[in-house]
Design a protein around this nucleic acid. Structure first.
Lengths: 200, 200
DNA sequence: CGGTTGAGTTAATGGCCACTAACATCACGA
DNA sequence: TCGTGATGTTAGTGGCCATTAACTCAACCG
């Protein structure tokens, strides 16, 4: 009986890399980039210390990859939603759903994402910022379609505020059963956006 | 002509302490607790390096004082508002106003407040958490009065989410003129709370 | 089999940094 | 005027930590 999944070294390498990224996200979220020694990251996946350099060029590169990953995933999800859905109201609902899914399923990544940008080396920091800006602009475009008379700066500020609301879930985790959290966040964020957009 | 304010060493000491706290808040907010060497804190107020130990017992003690300060100020403002106002609806408006004032006037403190609790030594961390809990409970009590059938856990989650919305302003600063930010935040947060509380 | 490659290991190394020591100054009050 | 306390200063000092060096070891490939 032969195995169906290839036990190639490639697969192992990918897994180890992914394990490290995952552990690092959790540790960075809990104690901050500078608060986590490299040995703890290795320790969290069963190897110790400098083994990390077999997979990443350094600690900062690891962080950069985390932030690039989530930035592009958020952005891609928004693009997918926008091109797949019908009217702006449905698109907005789908954007909310997608972002809430990220926030609930990847709390560590979301936390690191808006705390540690300053520790990413200049080069990839610019890339990440670009992706974040594009993501925000997807939201702003949808909101503008729903309410053309509202100035874009106001829509941007409202979008950032809603991200703050949604991304705060990691901090208040455990307050509510996860099944109840999703609709609650959806309702609150939707109401906040509608309030921002009405009354000019 | 004699001066009216006493030029006592006591006054100077207080000022220097306050200066250091203020500078440290800004630096911690920008680069994180572990990312700021003590020399930079001193440098920001014109003294250099270990002068800090004349005013604080250490770096962690400095951070603890920052968080204790804002936690108790938030809590006190809530108590003041609750005891001074009339009905629950007015109280909620006043709570929103007070929190928004903090978020807009002390962005650095607000940021540090919900990022760096983990770096405070155990002893005062418990104290800070207690104050934070009391602050949340002021909000929950008001919301419960407005909507008794809503479970407290849901009210707590909604309160945390609204704090996330309000405290995110430092990150999106400059998007909007400050005069426009306040009513926008008020409207969005109020709408989010109402949405959380209705529909059970 | 012999060699290459991927993935680890432990032991430096060197830098940064919190904190301490030892010494200076200056404003006072007695 | 002398001493004293508050506030600084500049040199350590010791520890932590990212990164590198030097060395295994197994798997795979020819």
């Amino acid at each position: 009986m032969t195995v169906t999944t290839a036990p190639t070294p490639t697969r192992n390498r990918g897994n180890r890399r992914a394990e490290i990224l995952d552990a690092a996200a959790r540790l960075f979220a809990a104690r901050g980039f500078h608060g986590v020694p490299i040995e703890d990251i290795g320790g969290a996946v069963g190897v110790s210390g400098p083994a990390l350099y077999r997979h990443f060029s350094g600690k900062e590169a690891l962080l950069a990859e985390l932030l690039l990953d989530i930035s592009s995933r958020l952005r891609e999800s928004a693009v997918a939603v926008v091109t797949a859905s019908a009217g702006p109201a449905e698109i907005l609902d789908a954007l909310l759903d997608a972002h809430i899914t990220f926030a609930l399923e990847q709390p560590a990544l979301i936390t690191v994402h808006d705390r540690e940008l300053g520790n990413v080396p200049e080069r990839e920091r610019r890339q990440i910022r670009r992706l974040q800006r594009l993501y925000v602009e997807e939201w702003v475009a949808v909101l503008a379609e729903l309410h053309p008379s509202c100035p874009a700066s106001r829509l941007r500020a409202a979008t950032h505020a809603v991200f703050g609301l949604l991304n705060s879930t990691p901090h208040s985790a455990g307050e509510l059963p996860p099944g109840a959290m999703r609709p609650l966040l959806h309702a609150m964020a939707g109401a906040a956006l509608r309030a921002a957009v009405n009354e000019h």
